[in-house]
Structure formats: structure tokens, C-alpha cells
């Protein structure tokens, strides 16, 4: 029964792992609901501000803000990469990093340098050995990120754009489609790509207060921050749902393994008993 004891300890250890994964699944499920609510709550802001940016593209303003002008030829680009702080959430971060690396390779093939800004521990530890210059880092955001946490990080990248260090800025995050599907997405922030708005073709312009430059700067910076914030809250919702799914499958797999091992254990036990009986019987026959 030596093998039997080994199998029993194996079963016990798998069961305790299963307990942990199922607990993590339940925690992720409850956090996912909160994260989704936060994501939905922040949507009106980013939708409304996108709409205003759409209007702005049609306004015949004399002043063109640098964020709205298509810049000169690309030499360096910046990418803000949003990841989770913690692991055990399936292939969520890996998928995102893979699509970012593909994009980086595309840029580098064209002779364009890339510098990055990482949000979340996973991105920071992944990209610090990638040879790309990290301009700013934001970690330990927790499950409820605050808008002000982002300001500094985004400002570093926007300052680089203002000084002409980079000619383009994008953000990479996981877009929340539904609980089962998360899509790695890379969106260009500046120069801005405005959406189409109907019925805005006539000649008009805003009255700007205090002046065009100040009002536009304030609006555009908030727009960019809103997009990054939206990316961040979506990524957190993705993280929780992805963790829930992967922990669920881990729990199921552990169940299967326990079942298989129990079968093996019972077979071994039965074999041992049969052997013992046959030994006794043959011993009795010999006497």
C-alpha cells in the first residue's frame, strides 16, 4: 500500500489547491460585478467627450491645437500599456503584450523608435527587459483606480509629445467585450483621429473662453486622460472576468484530476486486497 499512501497525499494536495482556486473564482466574480459597474459609470464621460471632440473637428477654428494636427514624419512613438498588477488571470496580459510587441516590431521595421509607459506591475516587469525606453511607470492601483492617479503618468507622455520627442501616442489595453471575451486593443490618442458627425458641415466656430488655446488644451488633455482612464477601468473588468474564467477551469481540472486519482487509488487498493486474499487462500491450501 505504499503507492496508495502516495496517491492519497497527492489527492489531498490537489483538493487543497482546488479550494484555493474556487475561492479565488468567487472573489473574482464578486469583484467583476463592481468593476463592470465602474466601467459603465465612466462611459458617459468618455462618450460625451468624444462627441465634443467630434464637433471640434468640424469647427472652423483659426487656432489649430498641436494635438489635432497631423504631425511631421514619425521618428519616435509612445505607447501607454495598461496591464494588471497581479497574475493568475489567464492569458490576459500575455495576449496584450504579444499584440503590443507585434506593433513595436512593425514600427521598428520602419525605422521608428518606440518608448513606452507602463501601468501595472505585469507590464513593468515584462517590458523592463525588452530594451524599450520606459518613460513613466504607474503601479499598485488596486481595484478602484482614481482619476488623479493617472494625471502624472499621462502628463509625462504628453510633455514628450509637446516637446516633439515623440510624434504619436497610443494606448494599449484589453477591451471588455463580455465576460468571456477580452480583446487586446491599441488606440491612437494623439494626433487625434476624430469621428464623423452628421449635420456639422456648415461654417461655424466656437466662442472660446478665456481663449482658444487654453480652452482647447484643457479639453484635449481631459479627453486623453478620459480615454486612458476608460482603458484602465475596462482592463480591470477584463482582469477580474478573465481571472474568474481561468480559476473556474482550474477548479474543474482539479476535480477531474481528483476523480482520476481516486480511480487509480481504488484500483491499487483492490489489487492489494485481492493479492492478500489469494496469499492467505494459497497458504491455507498448502497446510
Amino acid at each position: 500500500m505504499a503507492a496508495g499512501k502516495e496517491i492519497r497525499t497527492q489527492i489531498a494536495s490537489i483538493k487543497s489547491t482546488q479550494k484555493i482556486t474556487s475561492a479565488m473564482e468567487m472573489v473574482a466574480a464578486s469583484k467583476m460585478k463592481k468593476a463592470q459597474n465602474r466601467m459603465l459609470a465612466s462611459r458617459p464621460y468618455s462618450e460625451k467627450i468624444s462627441k465634443v471632440i467630434g464637433h471640434l473637428a468640424y469647427a472652423h477654428s483659426e487656432f489649430k491645437h498641436p494635438y489635432m494636427k497631423e504631425g511631421s514624419d514619425l521618428k519616435r512613438v509612445g505607447i501607454i500599456i495598461i496591464s494588471s498588477d497581479r497574475g493568475l488571470c489567464g492569458g490576459l496580459n500575455t495576449n496584450l503584450f504579444r499584440s503590443v510587441l507585434k506593433q513595436v516590431a512593425d514600427y521598428q521595421a520602419k525605422g521608428v523608435e518606440v518608448e513606452i509607459c507602463t501601468i501595472g506591475k505585469k507590464a513593468t516587469s515584462f517590458f523592463k527587459n525588452s530594451g524599450l525606453a520606459i518613460k513613466s511607470v504607474l503601479i499598485d492601483l488596486g481595484d478602484t483606480p482614481h482619476f488623479d492617479d493617472l494625471l502624472g503618468t499621462v502628463k509625462v507622455m504628453l510633455d514628450a509629445y509637446d516637446e516633439g520627442e515623440i510624434q504619436q501616442l497610443s494606448v494599449a489595453y484589453n477591451k471588455f467585450e463580455n465576460t468571456m471575451t477580452q480583446t487586446p486593443t491599441v488606440t491612437q490618442l494623439v494626433p487625434m483621429v476624430a469621428g464623423e458627425v452628421d449635420g456639422m458641415d456648415h461654417h461655424w466656430d466656437y466662442i472660446y473662453e478665456p481663449d482658444a488655446e487654453e480652452a482647447l488644451s484643457a479639453l484635449l488633455v481631459r479627453y486623453i486622460e478620459a480615454l486612458v482612464y476608460q482603458g484602465l477601468v475596462e482592463n480591470i473588468a477584463c482582469e477580474q472576468s478573465s481571472r474568474m474564467i481561468s480559476m473556474k477551469s482550474a477548479t474543474d481540472n482539479a476535480g477531474d484530476m481528483v476523480k482520476d486519482l481516486e480511480l487509480v487509488y481504488n484500483k491499487a487498493r483492490q489489487a492489494a486486497i485481492t493479492q492478500e486474499i489469494s496469499e492467505i487462500v494459497s497458504g491455507a491450501a498448502a497446510v
Partner: peptide
């Protein structure tokens, strides 16, 4: 905003400096 930007930069430098964690 400026001081927050500086903090973010500092964190980046720390992360780059610790790149030989492996």
C-alpha cells in the same frame, strides 16, 4: 501635476535600474 509627473518618471527610472532582477 508637475510633481506627479516627476514621481511617475522616478518610478520608471527605478524600474529600469532594477532591470537585472533576473
Amino acid at each position: 501635476d508637475e510633481s506627479k509627473a516627476l514621481e511617475a518618471k522616478q518610478r520608471a527610472e527605478e524600474a529600469m535600474a532594477n532591470s537585472d532582477n533576473g
